[in-house]
Design a protein around this nucleic acid. Structure first.
Lengths: 248, 248
DNA sequence: GTCGATTTCGAATTACCATTGAAAGGACTC
DNA sequence: GAGTCCTTTCAATGGTAATTCGAAATCGAC
């Protein structure tokens, strides 16, 4: 297809009549389109984003998009194809790292909130669109279910190991994941509710929100809530690259 | 405008050529349109719902919708005008009922989840649409902010009264409300993740989910988690019309 | 039967948007 | 210089959807 030669000063092909809105990227047209589409999908919603807008953002005319992508949905599928990979890879990393289920769950929630704040679209909308045309979204659903199952397994491990109260681990997983997603919605966009008053008061960072959420959830799950401080410390230490606390 | 005379057998005006999809309602065309639009907005998203579909559902031709509503957005505004009223009224009721902040919060979460399961649209989408055209949505945003503030005040009351841990009440309010909203999304629609396996295993009811969520949240907030059972009992007793438990 | 009010239809308009296909404009090779 | 390849533009098509507007079809009053 279209690969730029890395030795050329200017790409082969007819010259563009306008630059990309964010400056011409070195990534090539295809990646530019994906990046612009991601941003627009997130800001305006998938349904309300037009091909003309995507083209504009990428510094192309609308029809050029079809040289790289079969259709509008193909762009969405491309984006969807990578979305679950990030959290699933983090889950794999948690398995390698080991440690108590509570610490791992705490870390996962914080990670998830941070990742979702960078999410290229409103997940509710995507799910709705995907439900109506299943072709092309199979991988997305499969990975999404796996992510859900992993969290469920993690909660179940905590329950069985006596770290957590005897909760329904499936419902817990659903709730936690849903909360991560919802919080990303409120922490984004033009109108921010429930954030600090005033334009200069600053808003909650996604790290703050993630930590708050992880604490609240863990406090609600721990068989011994008094362990929360130790769990939080171990969780934060992991991300700072320190050695994990022992015997919590 | 259009008011049906209550004494007439059949409404004045040209007869319809088809019945409303859900049977002809006694409410009149305007209310029918609102009801159908609400259902479709919820099922398909606001952006993806067409005027033709709404008309079809109401047993009218498309252009008839404009006799009753100025535009598509006017239908949405009509629906939005009532949405926050239900939870806000419940909040008022909580104030009248009194009782510990923990019990009131528990009841509110359960109520909110139940109400949101009947919500006539995906709230994320509406917020996105409303952000892009502020005219007509002022009341909605005002009420939405009030609801948020009320929950924040309730949490703050619990914190000050020593019922809850010293949490950021604003961030807590945002989190709880967001979670209610997100859970409604997963408890609706065609593809249900993280629900019980199998087609006959049954899914979580919104009451189950609401109770779970209320318990999890309160367990995470209570200064003395051991009080949760009593809080739950008092919360459930309220809804069953029994006298509230005293001295919890 | 006529008239006014109400409700609805049907046809049309307008705008928008996804997509197609031919042609243009450059680099590179022979 | 011609031809090939790649990339992009331009013009157009076809379809869809929101909205407009004139007229039809009914009821009720007189």
């Amino acid at each position: 297809m279209s690969d730029q030669t890395t030795t050329s000063r200017r790409p082969v092909g007819r010259p563009r009549t306008k630059a990309a809105a964010g400056g011409t990227s070195e990534l090539g047209a295809r990646a530019e389109i994906v990046a612009v589409a991601s941003r627009l999908f997130a800001a305006k919603g998938v349904s309300e984003t037009t091909m003309a807008e995507i083209a504009d953002g990428a510094g192309l005319q609308q029809s050029s998009l079809y040289y790289y992508f079969r259709s509008r949905d193909a762009i969405l599928e491309e984006i969807l194809g990578t979305v679950n990979r990030v959290p699933l890879e983090f889950v794999e990393r948690l398995k390698l790292d080991g440690g108590p289920a509570a610490v791992r769950l705490h870390r996962l929630i914080r990670f998830d909130v941070a990742a979702l704040s960078e999410f290229p679209f409103d997940i509710n909308e995507v799910h709705r669109l995907a439900s109506r045309q299943p072709e092309g979204f199979d991988l997305y659903w499969e990975e999404r279910q796996r992510l859900n199952d992993e969290i469920e397994a993690l909660v179940a491990e905590g329950v069985e190991g006596g770290e957590f109260l005897s909760v329904d681990s499936r419902l817990t997983a659903m709730t936690l994941l849903a909360n991560d997603e919802a919080v990303q919605h409120w922490n984004r966009g033009r109108r921010r509710l429930a954030n600090r008053a005033g334009p200069d008061a600053g808003d909650y960072t996604s790290a703050e929100i993630g930590l708050f959420l992880a604490d609240l959830a863990l406090r609600g799950l721990l068989a011994r809530p008094a362990r929360l401080d130790a769990v939080r410390r171990a969780s934060l230490a992991r991300e700072a690259g320190e050695a994990p606390e022992s015997d919590i």
